[in-house]
Design a protein around this nucleic acid. Structure first.
Lengths: 232, 232
DNA sequence: TCAAAAGTGTTCACCGTACACCCATGG
DNA sequence: CCATGGGTGTACGGTGAACACTTTTGA
């Protein structure tokens, strides 16, 4: 059992956010990183983080940290796990709880992130990060892959309206593998959670491609009926 | 970024262990619970827990807590997630990191757990637990189901040698659904990670049923070759 | 008229599922 | 000899994977 509530084992608890965005030009998954502005490791690349305050939950803290950097609220976030190596932070005993967030890369406040010296990096060309942040990123990518296979979270990374091809490129980036567009369309259509719009996106071809929108209500109704979303 | 390393936001961090065992007589998944011996909620049922000390990781703390209760080491454990509601513990701001553990129910130190007032409960007939421990248990059961579907962790809950029927009953208990023995055998055999022994277990029938043993090396070799364990 | 991307169907192999009878043994 | 659980095979439907040609349109 708990021995007693003594103060000597209290520790600092931080949250660190792995922020994913999808770059449609380069068709790559990207990661928002900041240049650390305090010692130790000043000037090195790092995840955006902050300490949990005494009157907030970890989720609150993660939402606050994400908001401070991007100006975005109501974002898909998920707790990854706690990192607790005794010497993970050389200054003080600090636990860190990693959260990963999926944002539409077009939506965030560009001036705000610049004021933090933040930058987007392809997950394939990210710099080395401080402390155990590399581990956190690896874990987040694995989690994202698992989640994207069984939850319609991919849509969080796209604008509201998107083409089949954009969606396909996104899944290709998440899994680092090419997909067959016929099979992909068939799969997506069989899930029956998108609405096909009358509009076309003409920026990518002369013919233009139809836009789709994720229909949350349809999805939730199907879930209630025992539907299982399976992309992979 | 982190503002600064101030002491005012330090908190206590506990670990709570969801300890699963498989009761072969009753063919049920069970949970080891303790009667809380300090206020608040003295005398109520609770998960076994303890505070993380300043010189140990969370994994260390979870291993220590499990060892103190059961006398077992080298047990499969996995971090579930952190619970951080501000008022989850009425005495002090405390985070708790839930861990789940799988043990062979025959192996633990019965006197030791009795000295803690601990008892095994079927997951279907567990008492109401203190704080947010009910949530932790629900999360652990979901995680166990997912894990058992894609990792050969079921074996942690059985003795070294077991029959196909025992293994099947275990999976039935984990998923709360009945399985067809022909399909189950076929599935298990196709995975090719068990060794069939020459011995038979004669306690359950006159004919007796063959004993099997999980072959870790075989499993790891297959993993290296890109094998994917899929029970469901 | 041509270049560039969009859109669309079929075939086949494999896997999960449903289902029923004989076998070995101890009492 | 018989009751009890152990062990085994087949048929079917559904899903994932491979694969190529036609359509639209702006320049």
């Amino acid at each position: 059992m708990r021995n007693y509530y003594g103060a000597e084992n209290k520790v600092l608890v931080a949250v660190d956010c792995i922020i994913f965005g999808f770059d449609q030009q380069e068709e790559e998954l990207k990661l928002l990183l900041v240049k650390r502005d305090i010692p130790p490791e000043l000037g090195k690349w790092s995840l955006m983080g902050g300490f949990m305050l005494h009157d907030e939950t970890l989720d609150d803290a993660a939402i606050r940290v994400l908001y401070d950097l991007t100006g975005l609220r109501n974002i898909y976030m998920e707790q990854l796990r706690v990192f607790s190596k005794v010497d993970r932070d050389p200054v003080a005993r600090t636990l860190s709880v990693a959260y990963f967030a999926l944002i539409n890369i077009e939506d965030h406040d560009k001036d705000l992130i610049q004021s933090y010296g933040a930058k987007w990096f392809s997950i394939n060309r990210k710099p080395n990060l401080i402390f155990d942040h590399n581990l956190m990123v690896e874990g987040a990518i694995r989690r994202l892959r698992r989640r994207a296979a069984s939850n319609p979270i991919g849509f969080e990374l796209l604008p509201e309206k998107f083409t089949m091809r954009q969606l396909q490129k996104l899944y290709e980036a998440i899994y680092s593998e090419e997909l067959d567009k016929r099979n992909f369309n068939k799969k997506i259509n069989s899930l029956d959670v998108l609405e096909k719009l009358d509009e076309k996106d003409k920026t990518s071809s002369r013919k233009g491609s139809f836009l789709y929108r994720f229909n949350q209500e349809k999805y939730l109704r199907k879930m209630d009926d025992g539907f299982v979303f399976k992309m992979k």
